[in-house]
């Protein structure tokens, strides 16, 4: 799908992966997250192969894929509470409520996810960035898809704040969105 690919992602930096449908953006992100093995080559994290780090790498990684990772029958709040418990981060009703408000779903917080629109589901999934955002590396697959202009702006600001606090992020997007970062690398995958 792609070869001869190499990049470094430093503190406060953003890697913007571009390319047509089917060019391997999602595959690259899954390889970076450790969900799929690379046919050749290696992903390193803080100088060590990410593969060998296991849970230490997982603790610093926040991955949001194509699928939202939400349970349809649970409410937005419940979904976030379980995500926090699994991630081992302390989450109170207040912090979850704040995360839900940050994505503009406060009035939908106690609604089962299956009653939400596509864009609202995406926002519910993205609420994890506010709840669980202390992790150093964010890998986001099409985070801006299905969002309205207002939400895109808020998300871009959140990513900017994360980078400002010494984080790093990798994301794919078809849209041009202005994100404040020390350095933005663009990686264009050819088909």
């Amino acid at each position: 799908m792609f070869n001869d690919l190499s990049f470094d992602l430093g503190v406060g930096e953003l890697l913007w992966v571009e390319g047509e449908n089917g060019s391997g953006k999602t595959s690259l992100l899954r390889i970076l997250a450790g969900l799929a093995p690379a046919e050749a080559g290696e992903v390193s994290w803080r100088g060590a192969p990410a593969r060998t780090l296991g849970e230490d790498f997982a603790r610093e990684l926040l991955f949001l894929g194509h699928a939202n990772g939400l349970k349809d029958d649970l409410t937005v709040t419940e979904n976030l509470r379980y995500a926090a418990r699994l991630g081992g981060i302390p989450a109170t009703a207040a912090t979850i409520g704040a995360a839900v408000s940050a994505v503009g779903l406060a009035h939908r917080a106690h609604l089962a996810v299956r009653h939400l629109s596509q864009g609202q589901r995406r926002r519910a999934a993205l609420a994890r960035l506010w709840l669980d955002g202390a992790r150093a590396l964010w890998i986001l697959d099409e985070p801006f898809a299905a969002l309205d202009a207002d939400s895109i702006e808020r998300l871009a600001a959140r990513i900017g704040a994360h980078l400002d606090q010494g984080g790093a992020a990798v994301l794919t997007s078809h849209q041009e969105v202005a994100v404040a970062a020390r350095r933005i690398q663009h990686l264009r995958l050819a088909n």
């Binding site: 969900l35 997982a58 894929g65 699928a67 990772g69 939400l70 699994l86 081992g88």
Partner: peptide, 19 residues
């Protein structure tokens, strides 16, 4: 698998066997 929670489960910083 369909809703993506399994993918998130694999990325949880805990042994997958326990999950």
């Amino acid at each position: 698998h369909a809703d993506g929670t399994l993918e998130q489960l694999l990325l949880v910083p805990q042994p997958l066997t326990v999950l």
